[in-house]
Design a protein around this nucleic acid. Sequence first.
DNA 1: CTGTTAGCGCATTCAA
DNA 2: TTGAATGCGCTAACAG
Lengths: 331, 331
Amino acid sequence: MAKDKVNIYDVAEEAGVGIGTVSRVLNNSQKVKEETRDKVLTVMKKLNYRPNKLAQNLASQTANAIAVVVPTFIDHYFVEVLKGIQGVLEEEKIDLVLYKIDKDKNMMDKILDIVHSKKVDGIAAVTMDISEHDYQVLLKEEIPVVLADEKISDFHSIYLDDIKGAEMAINYLLDLGHKKIAFINGLKESQHGSKRLKGVNDTLKSRGLKLATELLKFGDFHTEDGYQSMKEILSLPKDKWPTAVFAASDNQAIGVLQAMEEKGLKAPADIAVIGYDNIELAKYLKITTIWQPMYQLGHLTIEILLKAINGQLKETYHKELELKLVKRETA
Amino acid sequence: MAKDKVNIYDVAEEAGVGIGTVSRVLNNSQKVKEETRDKVLTVMKKLNYRPNKLAQNLASQTANAIAVVVPTFIDHYFVEVLKGIQGVLEEEKIDLVLYKIDKDKNMMDKILDIVHSKKVDGIAAVTMDISEHDYQVLLKEEIPVVLADEKISDFHSIYLDDIKGAEMAINYLLDLGHKKIAFINGLKESQHGSKRLKGVNDTLKSRGLKLATELLKFGDFHTEDGYQSMKEILSLPKDKWPTAVFAASDNQAIGVLQAMEEKGLKAPADIAVIGYDNIELAKYLKITTIWQPMYQLGHLTIEILLKAINGQLKETYHKELELKLVKRETA
DNA sequence: CTGTTAGCGCATTCAA
DNA sequence: TTGAATGCGCTAACAG
């Protein structure tokens, strides 16, 4: 029956038509007689023919796929964004090519390889922290790009305001009466890290307060980092202890709580704790936190990317997604 | 400078060579004089030329990409497997195309589309629970396939033994002296669900015990499900309460603990709890659990897939990954 | 070692 | 409405 490799010529021959006609029914072209279409369709099924997309893409100059570029796979964050992305791609029948690209000197070189590869029609760069020099060169390429969780005026950007988020957290703690607040931040060099730090510092300053050096910690966003940071803080003399801790991720907040528990400390009674992200567990552990709409971030990013690809965007699209304070029991 | 679309002809012309030579330097063919190679390389840089991979792939009949097919994005599980996958792909410079395919009647049709699309050289199907009818048809295709977290004798399979895992958990609880054990399972219809249930039932039976109907719950693997299930159990008359709970995922175990805490119950003092997966949080929450090597699962799956693609596999590869009981404080 | 030619499988004119 | 021809950008013989 079905031979090894069935191509458009085989179908055409078997159906007694030209390959042009087969191509037309493949692409739902209107100019095909109902009868011929059925005949071709039947043959395609009989031969178990399915088009070679590489060839389709090469000929049509469109890949029917988009690239999602991320620097790391962070548990909850990444999965939520991906769900949002997948949601819209599935409807559109567009493939998703996933690239993990480290934020190093070769980053843009790798991205340019993707651009020129023609395997994708557009790129969604998620938290890539693109440097000015790098995006200058990316700008020269004609491929649609949307930045997620990052704002650069020359690119379509869907982003969150880290400064505002930090501000919300700190103001909330201040309003609760806390004056000695610790901040367990993310990576020192990251956009997120520096912006949240700014938010913390500015807010404190506006209330005539200041972040003590020994109460500022950096780390990655993992539970382990929060745990270690809090242990360091709790190893300070008791009079240096904070009355509240702002952690840059819920995972870190969980580590903080863990370190506290080992010392027999309770939140918020002994030390209040507020996190960031609102992961599912934050709900069950009743952690007060700043909610980031990650699913929506992924979803909107792809919606905009597809519009850009289809030329439906007149100008650069910018959208800030709203953060929300979720009040629970740890602060 | 660099024109809009630079192709191999532009490079050839500018360098004063034939396109064959350009192609050879692109593919690191040895038969190119050092001098010519340098000249071509220089021109490529000057023109910012990067090959069109669609064309390369079509001409060479290899996609330099693999498909990863999953039914859902489950937080920790999925990310860990993906990390393992990504690890080996990155080294090999092979692209990853991610497909989310629901486990319904059209599943195999979608997979066949992928096969014939020629966009990938092989497929890694992760927990796809392929039915017998479906895999019969897949078997007829010539594309390399590796199943992750699923075992079918005709396919390369990297898998875990759910029965054994359940057995380990239950035996551990029994050895601790528990006789009334509850089992909060995953989805009823899933392979995982039915196998773990079998493991639980068999183990109990071998010790002359039996799982009470009201102590068996099904749900998805989320925290919420564990929480709800445990609430139902705790709403039973106290004399029906179990002395230990086996949850089919750590997330569910966390939900269980949460439901217990709301009733002022402690683990293991009041009711012992054992989970499954060993997610990062299980460590911090000190949950005793069954550790599943998910990173390794992804890693090995791709290693085998690449070998299959390269024709380095003489026969069907089967490998069971070892589970491990991680003893902590909740049981 | 290198240039030339013929496909890869399809979309897309252009005529008919 | 349809068939035949041309090209997408590259690889892979095949000569030279």
